[in-house]
Design a protein around this nucleic acid. Structure first.
Lengths: 206, 206, 206, 206
DNA sequence: CATGAATGAGATTTCATTCAT
DNA sequence: AATGAATGAAATCTCATTCAT
């Protein structure tokens, strides 16, 4: 009947608009990483992006929206990076090792991403879950194939996927987030040995 | 980072005071779990605790303080629980398995705790780190002894500690936090098999 | 399940609270009258009331709420005034004349009320209608009785009620609102003669 | 009160310009009617008119200006309608009746007009008064002639004009605005009878 | 003529904290 | 010990208006 609702927050049509929108996303990534979602203010984001406060609302309806978009984009970038890093590798163990390294390198070069993902639980829980579920699904598919091919032990692929994500997450936290560097080579080898042992060792039972 | 009020915020002397203080802590645990630290308001906490707003400041100088105290108390409770659950066990593997189960049961009965710990990173980072570092230290000591005794493979104990915490954390997230239940027995067995494999398999090398 | 929602905006319990609340209502009446609902800011209201901005929200959830409350209170005051002014009069015509005069005097002493009622249509339409409908109902009851008693012509009471309200409203606008004074006695007599004629003259038909 | 832009806001010269300007006026009439002046945004108006935001300022210096123009145009249209409807009628009573009906029909076909006029008091008070004063003047002139010719009672013409406008306004509110329809024929006859009585009955006195 | 990105002042609303009782 | 009224800084969001294209 009567059209209501605000003028749709649009995808910009001009190149200038595109640039502004990107500046906002970049600013938001920095500020969210530094301050956390709740303490980050729109004013801080536009300040970092060097645009006026009101400009924010030309492109995003609220703080949640830019956060969610950021999470989606960064998630995509991570997967691209993982896909590249593991392309063409022929054993599952090689994939895990390359993937682990790629992940650690990725979060090292996107330290804010780490903090952004960890906050997502409180900002947009559905998106947060789907981030991990999507990642777990990729992992699990690869693992299922490896189980199928008798390459690794017969463990539930999804469970293994969450365990691996947990390992990577905590190792990344301990070294990349807290120390700002990759784990020393020796420790990284220990991580790989642990994972290899977990994946290969068949014997179950107590 | 932690602001201090000037008024000497006292430990209550009377039994009534003790009770009030505990009601506030209980209310805070619920509200922080539901809303997150930033969105949780003192008014909500006192409302849940069924005391007047001003009463809060009789016992705590500010919002951070009650959060930190909560984290410390819950951390203590978790360790007590883990200590109980693993007391007297004679193999490291048995300790890990019992510890894993105890952890999952603990977070199941303190679902808010899970969310509180995960927020601590953005509220009181030092405390957050010391929570994990303390936990890691306990683990690492046990693991170092097991390495010493040739019970498990020669891996860096601290690194293993973080890997195990990561595994438990993510399995807990996947099952307890998201599904509200412990993982099915079969999957739990897969977790244990994975960990056993990781810990026992000595030979490194590619 | 989980109690949500803000701490209820309360009726104040202490005398001090009562006073503050009343100061806000008084300030709001002035500001709404001067500026109109939309241009009136909460800050202006609290400024007039000489309390801090935040104090407003201790007593009212938003601008609408205080406006509606104001309209209700003022409506009540008008009716009280009309009831007093017409109590004991024994002819309908006398009631109309006394009522007209009382209305004009009332709006003269509450010039803001005039403007507040007229804005209500855009602020709280339901309340606005019920204000007029309530007033019309009172009128119509009195008129119906007068028709019954053959005191006035057999016209639909509700229709007459709206006509009378329209007359009073516009005469009040022309004189009280625009000139700040009651109509000159001579003109007031013309109003009464017109109404008498309208009410008494029976002959219908063209 | 009326702010003036510097850019010479032009009357459009081309036919295309004429059309755009009219689209804006039409859009504004709808939006002002739906939302009220203050809540109506330029963006909503241009959205309804299906032109770009900036286009607004090609034709109008600001929001007030288009509102005032709208009021003037609609006022003109009403008078045209009243003039047509009463042209050639030879008694004042016939004029009033035809005028009343024409007014009600007019507001029925311009429901937004009703709301626009009622808001004008808070947007452009001078124009609002002059709207009523102009209308009252026309009325009063006709009424004065009728008094002169002994056709109606000797009442102050301006006062009667305001009373009649009040009656029409409130009957229109009750039926056209609230019910979306003209009053039932019977009630309309009661309105006419009331007015005839008021106008004809000469004798004053209590 | 027409466009739509950009601006920034101003409004509403929340809430941690203080303080008088 | 407990209360709850009061505060005001800070945050979000809206939108009339300008301006470069």
């Amino acid at each position: 009947m009567v059209r209501r609702g605000k003028a749709a927050v649009h995808e910009p049509t001009t190149a200038r608009g595109q640039r502004t929108r990107q500046k906002l996303l970049d600013g938001a990534e920095e500020i969210f990483g530094e301050e956390g979602f709740e303490r980050a203010s729109i004013a801080a984001i536009t300040g970092r992006a060097e645009v006026a406060l009101g400009t924010f609302y030309v492109y995003f309806p609220n703080k949640q929206a830019i956060f969610s978009e950021l999470l989606i984009e960064l998630g995509r970038a991570l997967r691209r990076r993982l896909a590249e890093a593991t392309r063409g590798l022929d054993t599952r163990l090689a994939v895990e090792e390359a993937g682990c390294l790629a992940f650690l390198e990725f979060v090292q070069s996107h330290k804010n991403f780490y903090r952004i993902v960890r906050q997502a639980e409180f900002v947009d829980e559905a998106l947060y879950r789907s981030y991990y579920q999507g990642l777990a699904k990729s992992y699990a598919e690869g693992l299922a194939a490896a189980v199928e091919g008798d390459e690794i032990a017969d463990l539930d692929p999804e469970t293994v996927a969450y365990m691996l994500m947990g390992i990577f997450d905590f190792i990344g936290m301990r070294w990349v987030l807290w120390e700002g560097q990759l784990p020393p080579e020796k420790l990284l080898q220990d991580v790989f040995r642990f994972i290899r042992g977990g994946l290969l060792r068949a014997p179950g039972g107590r």
